[in-house]
Amino acid sequence: MPSQHQLRRRSAATTPLLLGLLLLTFVLVALGLGDRAIARMAAETLIRVTMVVGFWIFVGNSGVVSFGHAAFGCIGAYVSAWLTLNPAMKAALLPGLPEGLAAADWPVLPAAIAGGLAAAVIALLTGAAILRLSGIAASIATFAFLAMVNTIWANWTPVTGGTSSVVGLDRYITPWVALGWAFAAILVAALHAHSASGLALRATREDEVAAAASGIDRYRHRLLAYTLSGFFCGIGGALMGHFIGVINPDGFYLGLTFLMLAMLVIGGVGSLSGAVVGVLALSIAVEGLVRLEKGIAVGATTFALPPGSQEIILAVAMILILIFRPAGLMAGREVMLPARWVARRGT
């Protein structure tokens, strides 16, 4: 007879599959509606799932809020652009690129992976310094990192194009490509959370001092999660670049940072499901409100919200969630099959 603890562990293994099914349903419904704008919204939402799940790997398990993850998106997006843009175009737009990059004409998949890896390497190097700090000091340092990356990218004009946008990225992101990466992020996040390192990291989140007394090297586990997290935010950035086709350093700055934080807070930082649900809820709400602003025709009359009300309604919704459901929509729970079902299958 397996213990309740074991049953819970087994149920937890169903979480990534259920989340994957949820996202699959989302894509099928979005494509089924046959509206191009909705299909685009679905792809964009799934890119955000990749980023926010990546973000959650670090923030959710360590309890340390990071303001720096949008910068990993920036790195991923530019690396993928450097590797995939037409060399002739790069010679004109980005004359300062080193020869290897200037001549590169990579297929999109390896370029996205390279973008993720580059972000992960930067996460490893900067995390090695930042994560020596504890709690709030580390959070502030991640914010400084975000500002540094933005400043470098905005001024390193020969290599990054500076504040003017880099254009002409291959727009290959369909909802299916985005779904593949979102699912990969969810799977890796779940595997990490269930690993020994994930458990050790959650112990440091609960109580740093007791974790040290349990032999846990906080720094090591945080750095691992930060690097993994940087990888998927880098991937997310690359996808975003190829989704819009145009990238700009300010597309990966405060706006994105706060959007990612808002999604995590609304869904609930305490669980992986919270990260996914937060992205879906906020993306669908924004899409709905944007449509309402444009107006809905009912018979001869058109009802429309005044422009700008989208932001206000969202702000009010966030405040209400913070007041009435401070742990987020999922409140730390995961979607999983009930233990009874898993027990029957397992025995």
């Binding site: 213990s3 603890h5 819970r8 112990a203 609960e206 109580d207 001092v209 007791a210 974790a211 007394a213």
Partner: peptide, 10 residues
């Protein structure tokens, strides 16, 4: 100083 969010076995 237990890890409040985890169960006893964890």
């Amino acid at each position: 100083r237990l890890f409040g969010g985890l169960d006893v076995l964890d």
